[in-house]
Simulated assay, not measured.
Amino acid sequence: MIIGVPKEIKNHEYRVGLTPAAVQEFVAHGHSVHVETNAGTAIGFTDDMYVSAGATMLNTAQEVFASAEMIVKVKEPQENECKMLRAGQILYTYLHLAPDPRQTELLVASGATCIAYETVTDNKGTLPLLAPMSEVAGRMSIQAGAHYLEKAHGGSGTLLGGVPGVAPGKVLIIGGGVVGTQAAKMAVGLGADVTILDRSLPRLRELDDIFLGRVHTVYSTSDAIEHYSSRADLVVGAVLIPGAAAPKLLNAQHIKAMKPGSVLVDVAIDQGGCFETSRATTHQDPVYIIDDVVHYCVANMPGGVARTSTMALNNATLPFGLALANKGAKQAMLDDKNLLNGLNVHKGLVTYKAVVDALGAQLNLEYCDAAEALSR
């Protein structure tokens, strides 16, 4: 199979779909890999390194899309990239379709087979291709929050760790999954006063054991969200419903009641955001202020540490990518129900129910079971 790796074009996105080491793995399995020139140069993966790994370098994205049978990316395809896809081609990348009607419409029209990293599962029911970026984003959320709490950046001038004689800053983390756990590790490491809200009592027990009482674990209710957000210096939105639009857990009134100069970091922004006042921002222009509250809603947070993120992502995506290339998309997914769960669009059919639930009425979409879609 011919694998294509275009250069990412989203604002300040320097990650790349395949590292040279991953390219070498595909080549060792008998596949050809076409990489766009300078796809990984910004993070130290030079064209020469790709050539040494066995890749063929192409000058433009158009050439990559035209030649490849499977496109491997990091971020969702932008509009011009969607229009380069063709029927029968495989797209393997993050998609986040539920809050993105335009991308969904274009992928349906393309006739391509589109597999979303964020909905591939494992035998434990977790999301192995989302987890590494969730780990990165969770850790970055505290770094970003601490930065924007500084007075010069619009914050209240609060040091999360405090100092002897001065109380530490209060961090509220909504959601105790991968993002929330990693955020808590960073916040606890800085010496902050950390509270985690979650609706799973077993998960709250696990977190209490992990942190040995160094964080406050609280069952998440509307009252708890209102109470703790009004006292927080930093709130991290870390909720996830796989493949679906994020629920709005903080409304405009909650945010208006927060302390002036406090900071919101919405890690769920890829799925539409979990704060009512959230809108996607970029690394170039990462924050805005509403009601004296700083909002950090960068839609590709892990792109800020692109080298680490790329290597972590490739560690997770490579085995599934090799299966797709070795067996072909249809057989690979029929052989592996976890990979089948990653199928979102196939031959103009939407095969992930949460996407249809979010966009079906707007785009006149009907849900088709993934296995049934593959049989057509």
Rank of each mutant, 00 (worst) to 15 (best):
I3F: 11
V5L: 05
P6L: 12
K7H: 09
Y14Q: 10
R15V: 00
V16F: 08
P20Q: 14
P20T: 06
F26V: 05
V27T: 04
G30N: 09
H34R: 01
H34K: 04
G40H: 12
A42N: 13
I43R: 05
G44V: 07
G44A: 09
M49I: 06
S52A: 15
A55T: 06
A55P: 12
N59E: 15
A61G: 15
A61T: 02
V64P: 01
F65T: 02
A66C: 10
I71Y: 15
K75D: 08
E79V: 15
E79R: 12
C82L: 02
C82H: 08
I90Q: 00
I90V: 10
L91D: 00
L95C: 04
L95S: 00
H96I: 01
A98T: 10
D100T: 03
P101K: 05
Q103V: 07
L107R: 03
L107Y: 09
V108I: 07
A109T: 07
A112N: 05
C114R: 00
Y117D: 09
E118N: 08
V120Q: 01
T121E: 07
D122Y: 10
N123W: 11
S134V: 05
E135P: 03
R139L: 06
M140D: 02
Q143F: 10
G145C: 06
Y148K: 01
S156Q: 10
L159D: 01
P168S: 07
P168F: 09
G169R: 01
K170D: 05
V171A: 04
L172N: 06
I173S: 12
I173K: 07
V178Y: 12
G180D: 09
G191W: 09
D198E: 12
L201Q: 13
P202E: 10
L204Y: 14
R205I: 12
D208Q: 15
G213C: 02
Y219E: 13
S220H: 11
D223W: 12
Y228L: 09
S230I: 07
V235F: 03
I241T: 08
P242I: 06
A244Q: 04
K248P: 00
A252H: 14
I255T: 10
G261H: 06
V263D: 02
V263L: 09
V265C: 02
Q271P: 05
C274A: 03
T277Q: 08
R279L: 07
T282E: 08
P286Y: 12
V287G: 00
Y288T: 03
D291K: 15
V294P: 05
V294H: 04
H295R: 02
A299T: 12
M301C: 04
G303R: 08
G304N: 04
G304C: 01
S309Q: 13
L313Q: 06
N315G: 08
A316K: 06
T317F: 09
F320M: 04
N326C: 02
N326A: 06
K327A: 11
A329I: 04
L340Q: 11
N341E: 12
N341T: 14
L343W: 08
N344E: 14
L349I: 03
L349W: 11
A354C: 09
G360A: 11
G360E: 14
A361K: 14
N364Y: 07
E366K: 14
C368E: 13
A371L: 11
A371N: 11
A371E: 15
